[in-house]
Nucleic acid binder design. Structure first.
Lengths: 219, 219
DNA sequence: TCATACTAACTGACTGGTCAGTCATTTATT
DNA sequence: AATAAATGACTGACCAGTCAGTTAGTATGA
């Protein structure tokens, strides 16, 4: 229970209080994601976030300066796993370009679209204009990296003869677009026309890979 | 000035009052689009809409029952041109499937993405969960029709040998996705990384048409 | 053609409810 | 005992929606 038991364990140098504080911070960002997803930023009540996290309203303000800051911190916290994955993925380069592109897309579908993280994408689009900080952070840390990663893979594919040469303006956006639309559809229109994510994923990669593929008998 | 001058003119049977009322209604929906686009539904003030339309706050409530209704009516009013176009487009069927698909996409880019109407798409995505009525209307009137139109074109293309057969789940969403993402990018990330809509359009159709194209030497 | 009465359209000060953020007090930990 | 963490009643700003009062347009009669 105290730090004497295992003084070398990297994260157990924390006191009980520090661990509790960290757990509460996590509970708060989880609750914030749930509440903001449900009703959007403006209509979300701090009191509801507090209740969902099992604390009182005042406590929220011990962890976050303001509603705005809570929102921004929540997005950053929820997206950091994506960041570290992307950082690693740009380096790793085993397999064909096709396989690597597929692996990235599969990762994105399973770790973002198929869980509550997809709500964050909708929130960024919805609230982006009101949170220039956040839009900039998201662009600099997620979109730019995603773009670099995809463009590097495409470039390799062109050199290996798997893909044809395309002029690149908006290439990343067009390739990722299907995934984004899936996130939106699931959160807005699914009740009227349900979307089967697995089948959708197949259509998406089929269309994109065929779209990128070098023509076998061109010229 | 009065109706005796030209009693047969179809739209001049209206009194001066009626014409003014119609003009004011239009001014109000225009102002509402501008204000809602700028700050989102919740943060928008009715007083700002009123000021932008050149009337006082009370007047807004002579034309619309509530803030919600103003928002929904605005979306419907701004989208009705799309509706009539789509209704006609499903019938008209000259040219190859490729040409028809291209024509539809070109129309969408020029009449929706390249003007302030693209803000509506972002608003639907942002506010959709809070406006089930509106999401349903949008799905039933815009998305379903768009889907029917695109699938009909694809089907014709398959029969004529232009396109390959694809299993259709989410085909419309994947084809239209690039356009949606362009709308979002323009309104959220353009300031950090500007998007040239014309070049983007070229990439989009290039990727989609190549993705749909039947392989020349298959089987 | 003007004067008058009538009515539709508009106005903006006001009300009532909501909620972000505060802080004196209480509770838990060391 | 000392200190850190948590609480929730409270405050002040904000704003959707109202309505008594005002203005502009229209119809009628002299």
């Amino acid at each position: 229970m105290n730090s004497i038991i295992d003084p070398l364990e990297p994260d157990t140098t924390q006191s009980k209080r520090e661990r509790q504080k960290e757990a509460k911070r996590l509970a708060l960002t989880d609750a914030a994601l749930a509440v903001f997803s449900r009703v959007g930023f403006a209509a979300a009540k701090i009191e509801d976030v507090a209740e969902e996290a099992g604390v009182s309203k005042g406590t929220v303000y011990l962890y976050f300066e303001s509603k705005e800051q809570l929102f921004e911190e929540m997005v950053k916290a929820k997206m950091s796993p994506m960041l570290s994955h992307m950082a690693g993925a740009i380096e790793a380069s085993s397999g064909s370009a096709t396989d690597r592109l597929l692996a990235q897309m599969r990762f994105f579908y399973s770790r973002v679209l198929n869980c509550d993280r997809r709500q964050i994408m909708r929130l960024i689009m919805a609230e982006g204009p009101n949170f220039p900080h956040l839009a900039e952070f998201y662009h600099a840390n997620i979109l730019s990296r995603g773009q670099a990663m995809i463009e590097a893979i495409i470039q390799d594919g062109v050199e290996s003869g798997e893909f044809r040469q395309m002029q690149g303006h908006g290439l990343m956006q067009n390739i990722a677009a299907g995934a984004l639309v899936a996130a939106i559809w699931k959160t807005v229109f699914d009740r009227f026309q349900p979307l089967d994510l697995d089948a959708y994923f197949e259509t998406h990669i089929d269309l994109i890979l065929n779209g990128l593929k070098a023509a076998p008998t061109e010229n």
